[in-house]
Computed example of a mutant assay.
Amino acid sequence: MDSFSLRCLIGVVLSLAIAARAHKRRSLDLSGAIAGFLVMSIHFAASYRYGAMLLAFFFSSSKLTKVGQEKKRSIDEDFKEGGQRNWIQVLANSGLAAILSIVTSAMTNGQDKCLDANESKVVTALVGGIIGHYACCNGDTWSSELGVLSNAQPRLITTLKPVKKGTNGGVTLQGLVAAAAAGFVIGITYVMVGLLTTKCDADVTWRQLLVVPLALAAGLCGSLIDSFLGATLQFSGYCSLRKKVVSRRLPTVTKISGIDILDNNAVNAVSVFLTTVLTSFACLHIF
């Protein structure tokens, strides 16, 4: 069995087990479990590193979602017990990376390649995009899940004025540090798994270590982009009836910030796309 076929087999078996477990533990609903199985299988078939980054994002985010649930219930208008995700949220957080994984694998005939612009600028840009994608997703999730638990009052990223917790675009120092840490986790996952599974020339291998600070920066940058979009293109208002910040205009809601153009899923998708593109360009200059 060649390496590509082996990755496909391992990907299918592992993805099925993880998706079933996530559905049982209510991290994913049925549609999310099916979508998760498909995108996870694609990631592992293309590269163990892509699959590992997806799992680092999924497991860490799922754990953090369950931290401080009582406090989050009082703040989040769309709070779900266990943070259960559906197929839309799964694809918003992994769909683009799955497409990039397929294209990269097709261009390399199923071979797992290191970041090396001297060998292929296109492949390097695509792999960099996958790294940026998960650094952004992880950064945004860690920032949201841990930032909301901060004792500090958030400030709107566009004006730095204090706002209520739960306001789209509100940031805290704790949330920003969490975003950077989340990007670091993605970077170190890529490097460590790559050292174990991917063979490259010695000088190319050592250069892969630069992925760690790059992913850290992408996690922070992605969170900042997400916050800026949330503060400007996503409506936030305080509902006097529910006593919490909401994202819908109602007679009982007083506007805090933003205009009603994007919802939360759209904000996430746009920020992921922009961070993916920026990281791709950065990789062309670094590697």
Score class of each variant (00 low, 15 high):
residue 141 T to Q: 14
residue 142 W to D: 13
residue 143 S to N: 13
residue 143 S to T: 09
residue 144 S to R: 01
residue 144 S to T: 14
residue 145 E to Q: 07
residue 145 E to M: 04
residue 146 L to M: 11
residue 146 L to F: 06
residue 146 L to D: 01
residue 148 V to S: 05
residue 148 V to W: 01
residue 148 V to K: 00
residue 149 L to T: 00
residue 149 L to K: 00
residue 151 N to D: 15
residue 153 Q to C: 02
residue 154 P to V: 12
residue 155 R to T: 14
residue 156 L to F: 12
residue 156 L to M: 11
residue 156 L to Y: 12
residue 157 I to Q: 05
residue 158 T to D: 07
residue 160 L to P: 00
residue 161 K to L: 14
residue 162 P to G: 08
residue 164 K to E: 14
residue 165 K to T: 00
residue 166 G to E: 06
residue 168 N to P: 03
residue 171 V to Y: 05
residue 171 V to R: 01
residue 172 T to D: 09
residue 172 T to G: 09
residue 172 T to L: 07
residue 173 L to I: 15
residue 173 L to K: 10
residue 173 L to P: 02
residue 176 L to N: 11
residue 176 L to Q: 12
residue 177 V to S: 10
residue 177 V to M: 14
residue 178 A to S: 03
residue 179 A to P: 02
residue 183 G to K: 01
residue 184 F to Q: 01
residue 185 V to P: 03
residue 186 I to N: 07
residue 188 I to V: 15
residue 189 T to S: 11
residue 191 V to Q: 08
residue 192 M to P: 00
residue 193 V to C: 00
residue 194 G to I: 02
residue 194 G to M: 02
residue 195 L to G: 00
residue 196 L to S: 12
residue 196 L to R: 08
residue 198 T to N: 02
residue 200 C to T: 07
residue 200 C to H: 03
residue 201 D to I: 01
residue 202 A to Y: 03
residue 202 A to E: 13
residue 203 D to Y: 14
residue 205 T to C: 10
residue 206 W to M: 15
residue 207 R to E: 14
residue 208 Q to D: 10
residue 208 Q to A: 09
residue 209 L to Y: 13
residue 209 L to V: 15
residue 210 L to T: 12
residue 211 V to R: 04
residue 212 V to K: 03
residue 213 P to E: 05
residue 214 L to E: 02
residue 214 L to K: 05
residue 215 A to C: 03
residue 218 A to F: 08
residue 219 G to F: 07
residue 219 G to R: 10
residue 220 L to E: 03
residue 222 G to M: 04
residue 222 G to I: 10
residue 222 G to W: 05
residue 224 L to P: 05
residue 226 D to E: 12
residue 226 D to L: 09
residue 227 S to M: 04
residue 228 F to M: 12
residue 228 F to T: 13
residue 228 F to Q: 04
residue 229 L to W: 03
residue 229 L to E: 06
residue 230 G to V: 05
residue 230 G to W: 03
residue 230 G to Y: 01
residue 231 A to N: 05
residue 232 T to A: 04
residue 232 T to M: 07
residue 234 Q to K: 08
residue 234 Q to F: 10
residue 235 F to E: 10
residue 235 F to P: 11
residue 235 F to T: 12
residue 236 S to F: 12
residue 236 S to V: 13
residue 237 G to M: 09
residue 238 Y to T: 03
residue 239 C to K: 05
residue 240 S to W: 12
residue 240 S to E: 14
